[in-house]
C-alpha cells in the first residue's frame, strides 16, 4: 500500500467535492470538480484506491500543483 498525492493541473476554484475519506474510487474517477477558465474541470484519481484525505474546501482558490487529496493505492 502506498499513499499518493493528487494534485491539480490547473489554477481554479473548488466548485464541488464529490468524494469523502474512506470512499473507494476507480482510476480516472473524479474526486472533486474545479471551476477554471469558465469550465468545470474534474480532479480525478490517477489510480484506483481509497480516499485518505481531502485537503481543500468548496469555494477555495487553488493554484496549479497544489495537493488536493491523498489516495491510498
Amino acid at each position: 500500500m502506498a499513499v499518493i498525492d493528487v494534485k491539480t493541473d490547473i489554477t481554479g476554484n473548488v466548485w464541488k467535492i464529490v468524494t469523502k475519506p474512506g470512499d473507494h474510487v476507480g482510476e480516472d474517477e473524479p474526486l472533486l470538480i474545479l471551476e477554471s477558465m469558465k469550465m468545470e474541470i474534474p480532479v480525478s484519481a490517477p489510480e484506483a484506491g481509497v480516499v485518505k484525505e481531502i485537503l481543500t474546501t468548496e469555494g477555495a482558490t487553488v493554484t496549479e500543483g497544489t495537493v488536493l487529496a491523498r489516495l491510498e493505492v
Binding site: D9, I10, S36, M37, M39, I41, P42, S44
Partner: peptide, 10 residues
C-alpha cells in the same frame, strides 16, 4: 484532453 486542465497545454 479537455478532461485535464480543460485541455490547456502544459
Amino acid at each position: 484532453n479537455p478532461n485535464v486542465a480543460g485541455g490547456a497545454l502544459s
